[in-house]
């Protein structure tokens, strides 16, 4: 027995990945609902071991893409491979390699938490040998005190925890989470961040959709932005952030202090007693700003800089483009 089948976080023991194949290879996938192009010839390749962010506004096509991968949606055209296995012609292997947490909160009210996880493991061909891992999932997702509770008695967040455990129960190599942190408490968010990072460190590929951009920024190595069923861009998180040339300098000034006139054009916003200056990466140096402040003998109580956030970039790329 290899070490990985012991209860441990490593998930690499699922056989069946084709050597060197990307975790997900999505080619020219289209899906129409009436007049809506939910997916419009979308191509995307996600490498093994990535922590990948799939972003886009409501209705962009993220869930349609994820459901096409998991087999819940039949695309009109295109092909999808999971670690080299076609998700239609080799659905058994492909689906065993995949663990998906659907966006909607769904559960089977007939069963207890423990039963749900055992049944789910059974669907994937895992028997009693999966029990230690199920145990670990129950502990990690803090479901221990609810293990014998009927699904119908759980709170929304607790049901979400069970769904996450369900997706992981067969130790998939590729895990897709469709907005797992929508409507969950801070604690579960933290747990999930830590847990998915550990899974990722142990070799699992993670794909995450979220509308919390700070979350995507903190977790994802690479990010794709989808809109109107098309891929807008795929870039590393740093490259994406670097697209935005602005830096922000926040200054808290003593009461009655006036900012030197040369700095006035840089003011982005003023809130009771502080000003925020918007500096272009290439045109304005912080040194010059400091020198101007010093020359004018401005009394600064506090200051700090802020990097652009993914949110600023995202708005530029989606809503900016829509309005423009």
């Amino acid at each position: 027995m290899d070490a990985r089948s012991q209860s441990s976080i490593a998930t690499g023991n699922v056989p069946g990945g084709v050597a060197d194949a990307p975790a997900l290879d999505i080619v020219a996938v289209s899906k129409r609902y009436g007049d809506v192009h939910a997916l419009d010839g979308l191509d995307l390749r996600i490498e093994c071991g990535e922590y990948f962010g799939l972003l886009g506004p409501n209705g962009a096509g993220k869930s349609t893409l994820i459901n096409s991968i998991s087999g819940l949606v039949r695309p009109d055209s295109g092909s999808i491979r999971v670690l080299g296995h076609d998700n239609r012609s080799e659905f058994r292997v492909a689906r065993r390699l995949l663990g998906v947490v659907p966006q909607e909160l769904v559960f089977d009210p007939f069963f207890k938490v423990e039963d749900v996880l055992r049944i789910q493991a059974g669907y994937y061909g895992c028997g009693p040998e999966a029990q230690p891992w199920i145990e670990e999932l129950i502990q990690r997702l803090d479901l221990g005190f609810k293990r014998r509770a009927s699904m119908r008695t759980l709170s929304g967040g607790q049901k979400r925890r069970v769904m996450i455990a369900q997706a992981l129960v067969h130790r998939p190599q590729v895990v897709i989470l469709d907005e797992p942190t929508a409507g969950v408490d801070v604690e579960l968010r933290r747990t999930l961040w830590k847990f998915t990072r550990e899974l990722n460190a142990a070799g699992t590929t993670i794909v995450l959709t979220t509308h919390y951009l700070d979350e995507a920024q903190a977790l994802c190595h690479r990010i794709a932005i989808v809109d109107h069923g098309k891929l807008k861009l795929v870039e590393t998180t740093e490259a994406l952030l670097a697209r935005n040339p602005w830096r922000f300098l926040q200054l808290k000034l003593a009461a009655g202090t006036v900012l030197p006139a040369v700095l006035e054009p840089l003011v982005a916003s003023r809130t009771n007693g502080s000003v925020e200056l918007k500096l272009h990466r290439d045109e304005h140096s912080i040194g010059e700003v400091m020198a101007a402040l010093k020359a004018a003998d401005v009394d600064i109580l506090d200051m700090h800089t802020r990097e652009p956030r993914l949110e600023d970039v995202f708005i530029d790329l989606t809503y900016g483009a829509r309005n423009g």
């Binding site: 998991s70 087999g71 689906r95 065993r96 909160l105 769904v106 669907y123 994937y124």
Partner: peptide
């Protein structure tokens, strides 16, 4: 909605 667990299974 829990039919998805059967439909996603191998």
């Amino acid at each position: 909605g829990n039919l998805v667990f059967v439909l996603m299974a191998p």
